[in-house]
């Protein structure tokens, strides 16, 4: 008798464990906090300051989503993930979304059961070397020892690039960006390879950034974007359109400075819909009509976030390049808010 009750409890527990992660939006609302998977520490993209407050380009996406869903951009729990643990953390429900310099690829989107909801940074893989090495092109790296983070697409690109150029190299496997930095500084590798943006961020944190150069070759396409679990499209829509709202806001000239003014109503119906003055866009994704306004207020529009975290006025000093609006010759193109 007691045994069967116990077994029944066990089965129920098994069932509960099985369906725990169906509606992410409800979970997040019930919890009152967004669990966001971020990098373990990459200055400019996601790094905690001395007080443990996270900031950065990827962190801003987490904040915008939290602001849209929960009404407060600070209600985010940042879960640092390595290249190895990030997708498992997402699949297991440990985090609700991932904003961690992750490349959108076919097999990750399909076989790994993730949904990449867009691209927040168009990147490519590059190499960083010491200036006194006298190397000016990646083609001169034949025979070099190269530090590389395991579990990343860069690992595969590197193998392909060296094979295509008929060169050899010695891979030095490292686990995180911090370890790569240390090994590279100690001279255990001649070159460090990762996304060019990551290289710039890493170099900015060096004591002597001027003694290191990033080689001109970009050997791959690395569209970096936030990802959610496959199978919960409602949640995916919220994250996708929050990112699009940030991008569209820049296109339409909505900034954190003029947003209060504009949300009183403008001549442009698209801005009105984005800010919830007109239409019912918020209801269509299960939120209220102010979601877009709150998302933009959390850290500014895409351009403001870029300028504040990784732009040319910051130590990282990345140019907009491919990440400019389509109207400025870049690739950023938000679908219409209609």
């Amino acid at each position: 008798m007691k045994t069967s009750v116990f077994l029944g409890t066990l089965t129920a527990a098994g069932l509960a464990a099985g369906i725990a992660s169906a509606a992410t939006l409800d979970d997040v609302k019930a919890r009152g906090e967004l669990n966001c998977g971020v990098n373990t520490g990459l200055v400019g993209f996601a790094a905690p300051d001395a007080n443990g407050n996270w900031s950065g380009f990827d962190v801003a996406v987490c904040k915008a989503v939290a602001a849209a869903v929960l009404g407060d951009g600070s209600k985010v729990k940042y879960v640092p993930t390595t290249g190895q643990t990030r997708f498992t953390a997402l699949a297991s429900g440990e985090v609700d979304m991932l904003a961690r310099n992750s490349t959108w690829t076919f097999s990750r989107d399909t076989d790994l059961k993730l949904d990449f909801i867009g691209v927040n940074y168009y990147d490519g893989q590059g190499f960083m070397v010491r200036k006194d090495l006298g190397v000016s092109s990646a083609k001169e790296l034949d025979g070099a020892s190269i530090c590389i983070q395991t579990g990343t697409t860069t690992e595969l690109n590197l193998a392909d690039y060296f094979k295509a150029n008929n060169m050899s190299y010695q891979p030095i496997a490292i686990d995180s960006n911090a370890e790569g930095e240390q090994q590279y500084i100690a001279g255990a590798c001649d070159a460090y390879t990762t996304d060019a943006s990551g290289l710039a961020a890493t170099r900015a944190a060096f004591a002597d950034p001027d003694n290191h150069i990033i080689l001109p070759e970009i050997i791959s396409k690395e569209p970096l974007g936030p990802a959610v679990r496959h199978g919960d499209s409602e949640w995916g829509d919220i994250v996708r359109w929050t990112l699009n709202a940030l991008i569209a806001a820049e296109e339409y000239g909505v900034t954190s400075a003029n947003i209060e003014e504009l949300s009183k109503g403008t001549q442009n119906p698209e801005i009105n819909r984005l800010l919830g003055v007109e239409g019912d866009l918020g209801k269509m994704i299960g939120l209220d009509n102010d979601w877009g306004k709150r998302a933009i207020l959390a850290g500014g529009n895409y351009g403001e976030i870029f300028a504040a975290t990784i732009g040319e006025s910051t130590p990282i000093g990345l140019a907009r390049g491919l990440n400019a609006q389509w109207t400025q010759g870049g690739l950023l193109y938000a679908p219409p808010f209609r």
């Binding site: 290249g83 190895q84 997708f87 097999s107 990750r108 076989d111 790994l112 059961k113 395991t150 579990g151 990343t152 690992e155 595969l156 496997a173």
Partner: peptide
């Protein structure tokens, strides 16, 4: 490590 990560 690497196989697990690349194949998921």
């Amino acid at each position: 490590g690497i196989t697990l990560n690349q194949t998921g």
